[in-house]
């Protein structure tokens, strides 16, 4: 913990307050909640997941963007009120080329396989055999990447931009970006519900 401007900035709790062993127990409980929510939302069926890409089921979009916006606003608010030190939380690095190409390959895998890694585990847990097969395929994909790594390493590490936030990359304030993203999400929610009615 460190004290700045009279405000107690704690977190993150790990590793200072929560030790490593307890952290794994925390991971287990967070995972239980994660799996429960994903399954309740309907992420345990490939038909529902790919429905987004064929315009017959927008569940993924609604759950995903509501979750992302909720967490983002929470992170900003916690930072604002000094509950969370935003300088200490993990921000994914930006390797521009591997982010774009890796993402496109994942998108292709999504429409062919019908799952992403988290949802495949969720679906396999309730007995979906196609999800179990998808997981086996994923292991194979990770293995192939690992074995072929010398071929991909240069590309994998190219285009490193550091650890920027999107609002910095776009040259706007954090608040403006948060409002813009929230408005974009709400507009998308309304638009998809109109599409659904037709």
């Amino acid at each position: 913990m460190d004290i700045k401007k009279g405000i107690l900035l704690w977190l993150p709790l790990v590793p200072d307050i929560i030790g490593n062993e307890l952290n794994l127990i925390v991971a287990l409980f967070i995972g239980i909640a994660f799996g429960f929510i994903l399954e309740q939302a309907g992420f345990s069926t490939s038909k529902k997941l790919v429905g987004l890409f064929y315009g017959y089921d927008f569940t993924v979009l609604r759950v995903f963007f509501t979750a992302g916006i909720t967490a983002m606003i929470g992170v900003i608010a916690f930072g604002h009120f000094g509950i969370l030190d935003l300088n200490l939380i993990y921000v994914n690095p930006t390797f521009i080329w591997s982010a774009v190409i890796g993402g496109i390959i994942m998108g292709l895998g999504f429409v062919i396989g019908g799952f992403c890694p988290g949802t495949s585990v969720c679906a396999a847990a309730i007995g979906k055999i196609d999800a179990m097969i998808f997981i086996a395929g994923s292991f194979l994909g990770v293995f192939l990447f690992a074995e072929g790594y010398p071929l991909f390493e240069e590309f994998y590490k190219s285009g490193f931009w550091g650890y920027p936030h999107m609002f910095e990359t776009l040259g706007m304030s954090q608040a403006a970006f948060a409002v813009l993203l929230t408005v974009a999400a709400v507009v998308t929610f309304i638009a998809t519900s109109l599409i659904e009615k037709e």
Partner: peptide, 24 residues
Amino acid sequence: AIFGGLLFGFGSQLGRGCTSGAAL
């Protein structure tokens, strides 16, 4: 399912995370 998983697994390594860790 195998082939889609393979692509997703491979892409998640290249992209340093999947729909959960990178996107969400």
